[in-house]
Structures are given as structure tokens and as C-alpha cells.
Computed example of a mutant assay.
Amino acid sequence: MTSPHYFIAVTLPESLKERYAGWQQALKNKLPYRQWPQSEDLHITMKFLGPVDDSRLEKLIQAMSEIERFPAFSLQTGTLGTFGNPKKPRVLWAGVERKHELIRLQENIEKIALKVGFQQEKRTYMPHITLAKKWAGGVIQLSDLKEHYTGQDQFSVNQVVIYRIHPEKQPKYHAAAVYNLSGEAI
């Protein structure tokens, strides 16, 4: 039996989850994606871990406690974007500001995971909130849609979570450990 999969993420406030769930509802009729995450599952991934056995998970949970010394901060989200071929994009997302504090937090998480034995991510970190994935066919022009799905929403980043993935459940992601950042967001 293979070990369950995990990832580390920043949580979103309910108000943002509701906003992006509204975008998803409106876009489902316009875009042929096979997967639309439930609003409860919306997040900003900091590091995907893949399969993790119980022993390594316990080490990671303990090591991640040092992240609680990291100060809380504010962050903006907004514009619609994609990964992959613009005419058949594999992922549809809401953009996230590449703020210095977010990048530092991600780098710290990467270092902690490396110490526990996880692979270093080789790709440049691109923060986003996945709204849909797995393109199901056809060619479309997304530029028209992007004009209607914009906005600057600001929220406080004050929590990081290690999530376990349950592919057969809805919602799919369940917290294995929660870390509160220190102080109030500026």
C-alpha cells in the first residue's frame, strides 16, 4: 500500500473562498475543465510533498513548528490566469501577489522540508489559487474572460497547514497539522 500524499499550504479566509467559488460557478459553463476544487479545498500551495510515510510525517510536523516564529503578513489576490498552452490551459488560477514575505515563508518551508529529507523544488515558486484543472477539450480565447475576473482582495496570512490528500472524499484536503504565524498582519 502506498503512503498518503501531503502538501503544505497557506489557508484562505472564508470570504475569499466564497468569492472564488462564485468565479468557479460562473466559469463552469464557459470552460471545459474536468476538475473544479470545492471551495473548502481552495488554498495557496507552498510545497507539494507527495507520498509521505508516518515516520517522516511526524518528523516534518515537529520540524515545521519553527514556522510559528514567522510573522503574519497581508497579501493580495486577484486576476485570473493560467498555466500551459493559453488556448488549452491545463490549470486555471487566481493570482497571488509575489510579496517578499510570502517568498521568504515559502523558502523557509522548503528548507525545513529539505532537512527532513524531502526533495528540493527545482521550479520557480509561482503562488496561485487553483480554480480548475485538467482541460477537457476545445480551443478558447481566455483573454475576454480575464477582463471580467479581476479584483484586488487583501487578506492576512496567519496560518500554514500540512494537508493530507483524500482523493476519494469531498472536500479532498484535511489538516494533519496547523501552524499559527506570530503577531498580527501589517
Rank of each mutant, 00 (worst) to 15 (best):
M1P: 03
T2M: 09
T2L: 09
S3Q: 04
S3L: 05
P4K: 02
F7Y: 02
F7S: 11
T11S: 15
P13K: 03
P13N: 05
P13T: 09
E14P: 13
E14F: 01
S15T: 13
K17W: 08
K17C: 07
K17V: 07
R19Q: 12
A21Y: 06
Q24F: 00
Q25E: 13
L27K: 02
N29R: 13
L31M: 13
L31P: 03
Y33T: 09
R34N: 14
Q38I: 04
E40P: 02
E40N: 07
L42R: 02
H43N: 08
T45Q: 04
D53Q: 06
D53K: 05
L57A: 07
L57D: 03
L60H: 03
I61A: 07
I61L: 06
I61R: 07
I61G: 00
S65A: 09
E66P: 01
I67Y: 08
R69Q: 13
F70E: 12
S74F: 02
S74K: 15
L75V: 10
Q76L: 12
T79N: 13
G81A: 15
F83N: 03
F83L: 10
N85T: 13
P86I: 15
K87Y: 14
K88S: 12
P89Q: 00
W93R: 01
A94Q: 01
E97N: 03
K99L: 13
H100W: 11
I103H: 02
R104Y: 03
E107K: 14
N108W: 04
I112V: 14
Y125E: 04
Y125M: 04
M126C: 03
H128D: 08
L131W: 00
A132I: 05
A132L: 09
K133A: 01
W135L: 06
G138D: 10
I140S: 05
Q141K: 08
Y149Q: 04
Q152D: 11
Q152L: 10
D153Y: 15
Q154D: 03
Q154A: 06
F155P: 00
V160Y: 01
V161E: 05
P167V: 15
P167F: 15
P167S: 14
Q170D: 10
Q170C: 00
H174W: 11
V178N: 08
N180V: 01
S182V: 09
G183Q: 11
A185S: 11
I186L: 13
I186R: 14
